[in-house]
Design a protein around this nucleic acid. Structure first.
Length: 191
DNA sequence: CGACCGATTGACT
DNA sequence: GTCAATCGGTCGG
């Protein structure tokens, strides 16, 4: 587990600001009595006025967590087979969130490898570098949807030990609307 | 109610 | 480069 964890006030930022602030932060997930995870390296921001966002057409049963208090986890199923992890941002009642796209795996790599069904040794690089892969490696599913990542939670985030000084912006991946909005953020240094 | 599509991935040509 | 896997939201009849 992490100590300290990110406080509520950390999440009280606009989605793009939070997306940048989360770069370099550790994220861990409890698997049995073990904690696995790594450092966040890539994020994307989504807001209510954004056609590419699930919250664009208002609150539904699926996206309700986006409108809950900052920090609340929003997990949804994509293409019927994968899960994506998001973190609610902005004020409560606003449908904003940050998609966690990639982490640098650091802790419990063997456990994550098993969860990803990797019998053979492969480059660690491909273990968590994508929202679906990340969710599989950390066993993220709908049981985490709506959860606030606190001290007692099975998923926790902490302040960056070594803040990210350089990052790049670019178009978000896999969307067809608002493609000109460069709200994908990637840490430049591999930490 | 049915058709279509999506904040993805991995296997295959 | 193409394509299937397969769930739930959205839109049209």
């Amino acid at each position: 587990m992490l100590d300290p964890i990110l406080p509520f006030s950390f999440y009280q930022k606009s989605a793009p600001d939070l997306a940048v602030a989360l770069l370099g932060c550790p994220m861990v997930r409890r698997i049995g009595d073990q904690w696995v995870g790594g450092i966040i390296t890539e994020t994307e921001a989504y807001t209510e006025d954004d056609e590419a966002s699930h919250s664009f057409r208002g609150m539904t049963a699926r996206n309700a967590a986006m409108f809950q208090k900052p920090g609340t986890l929003y997990v949804y199923r994509i293409y019927g087979i994968h899960f994506c992890l998001n973190i609610s941002s902005g004020d409560e009642g606003r449908g904003e969130a940050v998609l966690i796209r990639s982490i640098q795996p650091l802790w419990g790599i063997e456990t994550m490898r098993k969860l990803r069904l990797w019998p053979e040794p492969k480059p660690i690089k491909g273990l968590c570098n994508g929202p679906g892969k990340l969710a599989q490696a950390l066993a993220i599913d709908l049981s985490l949807n709506g959860v606030w990542p606190g001290q007692k939670s099975d998923l926790q985030l902490g302040p960056a030990t070594q803040p990210v000084e350089k990052f790049s912006c670019g178009p978000r991946v896999g969307i067809t609307k608002n493609v000109e909005r460069a709200w994908r953020f990637q840490a430049s240094t591999h930490l």
